[in-house]
Design a protein around this nucleic acid. Structure first.
Lengths: 133, 133
DNA sequence: ATAATGCGAAACCAAATGGTTTCATAAAAG
DNA sequence: CTTTTATGAAACCATTTGGTTTCGCATTAT
């Protein structure tokens, strides 16, 4: 059979690109809320907020539930795992380099140089080829 | 003194929203490259790639260096820390739930149930209000 | 000196985005 | 039953986005 047809059209990366939508996530992470209550927190029309909610919903970042005449939204964190995984690919930068930087900062006035940072260690693995994540 | 004036105009969230730009980051994470070489990896004009590079540069995600007549770009991971921090705000979702899920998975055939997961623990903190990050 | 290469700026364009106002409908309240 | 409330759909609009082609300017190669 053919699938439901609803191609997502909005991914997590797009969804969180907009500051209003990031604010929405913070709000709906705290509590489930109906649209009018939600939109009272934003300097735009209820309809505009509703469209942002739709985009978040497309990305799976919020779930809606009808209760009487209102639609209540709450955050759904699961799609953020994709972001987390994407970010994890670059993790080595902080695993190695933050440690190196910390060491450098802590060395502080203990060195006799002109104050220019020695980034040798920090750039150590710049050219190592990697496979796709 | 007044600042340089160049308001960033592109933040990390916008920068990584585009799949081409995410691919660019993967490419430039592996090695520093001049524009023409970079653009050979993409099904669009060199100029288009150049504009994506500009956006990444605005967001601080790549740095450029002139070498003779070519401009070489390399990735700069630092701004991803902002993303990391933003994501960290939702960390509790995985701190608790992944542990709970792990426990469930490890219980495996040790339980006498029908195999349907008991998500009670996983949903435990759904309604706890939180302060802003 | 002349030609070729590498690159960004400019002008242009179609489509997507983020907002608006108006309208239709369903549910609750009077 | 009539009215009010909650919401999404539709039509519309300005701006941004992602792409193109053309052009000009340095820099390197012949």
């Amino acid at each position: 059979m053919a699938d439901g047809g609803a191609l997502p059209k909005h991914d997590v990366f797009q969804a969180i690109a907009d500051p209003t939508r990031r604010k929405l996530l913070l709000l709906l992470d705290e509590r489930e809320m109906p649209v009018t209550a939600i939109s009272s927190h934003f300097p735009m029309s209820r309809t505009a907020v509703s469209k942002h909610l739709r985009i978040l919903s497309d990305a799976g970042l919020v779930k809606e539930r009808k209760v009487g005449r209102e639609t209540r939204y709450r955050m759904e964190p699961e799609p953020l795992l994709e972001l987390k995984r994407w970010l994890a690919y670059f993790e080595r930068y902080w695993e190695n380099k933050m440690a190196a930087l910390k060491r450098f900062v802590e060395a502080d006035d203990a060195d006799g140089s002109d104050g220019a940072p020695d980034l040798t260690v920090i750039n150590q693995d710049r050219d190592k080829p990697r496979s796709e994540p």
